[in-house]
Amino acid sequence: MSVQSILERVLQAVDQEAYLTPVEQVDGRFHEALSTVAAALADPSKHPDECRGLARALHREGRLDAVHLYSALHVIAASPKVKNYAEAARWAAEQESAALSAGGASLEANLASVDRHRGVLAFLQGHYEVALDYFARALERQRTPENVGNLLCALVRLGEIDEAVDLLSHLRRVLPASFVRALDERLHDDPDLRPLTNLERDP
């Protein structure tokens, strides 16, 4: 095995580690199925086609609805394993269409997922202002630590450190303690965001 291929594997692992696919915010009915897909995607021995096949099988079994099938296919396409952003964008559009068709009480959460996916695509391609716009929409529709974390990531990438620190300090004052704890976990785990907590303490 060449040094180059070993290096590629190491870098792939680093990229995979930097691409988070949480399921906590997902509708409880699909939580288990999407956890299975996330685990397959994180497994270096699994080919992306296996992950796609798994998501489609779960949909056939009725364990994933169309919205979450397309969401899963987007997450797979945008992952460091595939990096096919055009395909990922098409799945996000399918997901939006499916969400609008389904409607109901989950509409806002489903559209927040679409906004997040589009923001991630913009972020991964270096368009941080576009990403910021999508992440802000996602946060308006669904207040989750994940959406706040992504918003902070975009602000940091744009060099708007003061705004990121101000936003973080404000959220700490107004959000419930459980939300702030989850946000702190995200901040601690993310090397981009960790310094913000130090700047909050020592402005």
Binding site: L11, V14, D15, E17, A18, Y19, L20, T21, P22, V23, E24, Q25, V26, F30, L34, V37, A38, H68, S71, A72, V75, A78, S79, S113, R116, H117, V120, F123, L124, Y128, T144, E146, G149, N150, C153, V156, R157, L158, G159, E160, I161, D162, R186, D189, D190, P191, D192, R194, P195
Partner: peptide, 23 residues
């Protein structure tokens, strides 16, 4: 501090970045 200057906290030496793409 000049605003709008991209801040690079990363020390990995690779232009990768952590982002959350939850389902």
């Amino acid at each position: 501090r000049s605003k709008g200057t991209p801040h690079t906290f990363k020390t990995r030496g690779r232009p990768t970045t952590q982002i959350s793409n939850g389902f």
